[in-house]
Amino acid sequence: MNYRFITIEGNIGAGKTTLAHMLARHFNARLILEAFADNPFLPKFYEKPREYAFPLELFFMAERYKQLKEMLQTQDLFSDLVVSDYLFVKSLLFAKINLPEEEYNLYQKLFDIINPQLVQPDLLIYLNAPVSRLQENIRKRNRSYEQQIGDDYLEKVQRMYTQYLRQHAVRTLMIDTTKTDFLGEPAHFQLLLQALEKDYAPGIHYLEVNSEK
């Protein structure tokens, strides 16, 4: 496999972290996970989004930058495989949804200073799931502050990711997870591993993984 830095992305509840763990174990890779639980503003944001959106997004961006910068300094990307469960640009995408225009413009200026300093992934695996599936997964993992996330918010996130991927030539493997269970169906995971042996051009490439295959 030619990819040394793989990032997994998707909406809230798409299964990013689960798949990142599986890939890291399989390839004996370094695993970088979003430290969402360390963000003290997250529960407050879901209760009072307007009041806490800006500190929430600043904290997330700072933590993501710190994690990825440390990876850049300590990893030999030519020999070591890294798997991450987030794309740094998600900071900007969520800020676009959550912040008023003036705060977003300030946030974007900070993002534009930081982003060029980071290594970009060789391949993005995007887990695309319908909102009903996302809500089911959110209920199952039972994080108290997530239980009030509405369908409309998830739909906004979905649209923002879709718009970004269509506008930028990110080398992306898009997987519809409606009938996909990487953890419970070993054959599904094997199909993904086979797909990772291929070389993809920049842009979106679709991988169909379901129980009928």
Rank of each mutant, 00 (worst) to 15 (best):
Ile114Val: 11
Phe94Ser: 11
Gln135Trp: 03
Val170Glu: 06
Gln75Lys: 06
Leu173Met: 10
Ile6Pro: 03
Gln75Val: 15
Tyr104Ser: 03
Ile113Tyr: 15
Tyr52Gln: 06
Glu63Asp: 15
Leu19Trp: 01
Asp122Glu: 11
Leu72Thr: 13
Asn39Leu: 08
Asp76Met: 09
Tyr200Ser: 10
Glu155Val: 00
Gly15Asn: 07
Ala62Phe: 00
Gln190Ala: 15
Ala53His: 03
Leu106Asn: 13
Tyr153Arg: 02
Asn128Ile: 00
Ile113Glu: 15
Lys16Gly: 09
Gln194Asn: 13
Asn137His: 10
Tyr65Ile: 05
Gln167Thr: 07
Glu47Cys: 05
Phe36Asn: 07
Asp181Val: 03
Asn128Tyr: 04
Arg50Asp: 15
Gln75Ala: 15
Pro130Ser: 13
Glu9Arg: 04
Gln167Leu: 12
Leu173Cys: 12
Gln67Tyr: 00
Pro116Gln: 10
Asn128Glu: 05
Thr18Trp: 07
Ile97Leu: 08
Leu87Pro: 10
Phe54Tyr: 13
Phe94Cys: 08
Ala169Pro: 00
Tyr153Glu: 03
Ala95Asn: 02
Val209Ile: 15
Glu51Gly: 02
Glu185Leu: 01
Leu207Ala: 08
Ala129Asn: 02
Pro49His: 04
Arg171Gly: 04
Arg50Ala: 12
Arg30Asn: 12
Pro49Glu: 01
Leu154Ala: 05
Met174Pro: 00
Pro40Ser: 11
Ala62Leu: 06
Ala53Gln: 05
Gly150Asn: 06
Lys156Gln: 12
Glu101Trp: 09
Ser211Leu: 12
Arg64Phe: 06
Pro186Ile: 13
Tyr200Trp: 05
Lys156Gly: 01
Pro116Asp: 11
